[in-house]
Simulated scan of single mutants.
Amino acid sequence: MTGWELVGVCAAGVAAGGINAVVGSGSLITFPSLVAVGIDPVVANVSNSIGLVPGSFTGAYGYRAELKGQRDRLIRLGMASALGSLVGGVLLLYLDPDVFQVVVPILIGLACVLVVVQPKLNGWLAARREHAHPHGGLGLWLGVLAAGIYGGYFGAAQGVLLIGLLGSFLDDGLQRVNAAKNVLSLIVNGVAAVLFIAIAEVDWWAVLAVALGAMAGGFIGAKVGRRIPAPVLRGVIVVVGIAAIIKLVYG
């Protein structure tokens, strides 16, 4: 990457930090940015996953007050996230790269749909929560496992998936649900990062740019993001997602 491309990717990381605070789909900014500067899609996905770990940590740390009393729950669900992430990462590395080229545009499209429907999803969760299971049960564990596989393989909008699962199965407030989501996302990204560092091809300049941007976004991006109307941010994400689909399909 050139110097200006590094700056652009870093800026995308900052934007992703703000977007994650509002709609939880920052990878739909950073991943297409890496592909746009000419990085192979699989390498871009690997590097993006590693680079987002610092941002995941700052997000989880920022919700430390809401995490009180959730240790047992997070240990149980964290095991599902870790196992799922490992399976998803192995699938990414060992499936034919052509499969990734075919599947990822579909996953990006799904992520864009989730971003668009999130307001209605949140309303449904609010009505559903009073009937939710206090501990989630096996259904939630299996759902978090599946979300971990998705996150290890690709990961865009995994936060939206996790909020939907946790909010549906747990009898808890949305802020505490979001705090748990941040920890589970950190586990998924962290496990995938360890796997990728050990055995995958990594673009370390891309990792550095995404990591610096994501860390900055964790501190200042959220403040900026909250001042921008959520529909505008969702519109930006959908446009970027469509551009990524076009880039991956037509080159």
Rank of each mutant, 00 (worst) to 15 (best):
V177N: 13
D203C: 03
V144N: 11
L145W: 11
G148A: 08
V202F: 00
S185R: 02
D171A: 15
D171K: 15
E201A: 12
A193I: 01
L212E: 02
A211R: 01
A192F: 02
A192H: 05
G139E: 10
A198E: 06
A209Q: 05
V194T: 09
G139D: 10
L162F: 11
I199V: 15
D172S: 14
N189I: 10
L138V: 14
A192G: 15
L170P: 03
R176C: 04
Q158L: 15
A146D: 04
R176K: 14
L170I: 11
A156Q: 04
V194Y: 01
L140C: 11
V188W: 03
F169L: 05
V160F: 09
L212T: 15
F169Y: 15
A179I: 01
I149P: 04
L170K: 08
E201H: 12
V160D: 06
A200E: 05
L138A: 14
L195P: 00
N182D: 09
G213A: 05
W205C: 00
V188R: 01
Y153T: 08
L165I: 09
V191M: 12
A157H: 08
G155W: 07
F169M: 10
L165W: 09
Y153Q: 07
L162Q: 14
G190R: 02
E201G: 04
D171V: 12
L212N: 06
F154Y: 14
G148T: 08
F154V: 03
V202E: 02
V191E: 07
L138K: 11
Y150D: 06
D171H: 15
L170T: 03
G213R: 03
V202W: 00
L140T: 04
V210F: 01
A146V: 15
V194W: 01
L184A: 10
A211V: 01
G164M: 09
G167C: 08
G167N: 09
G173N: 15
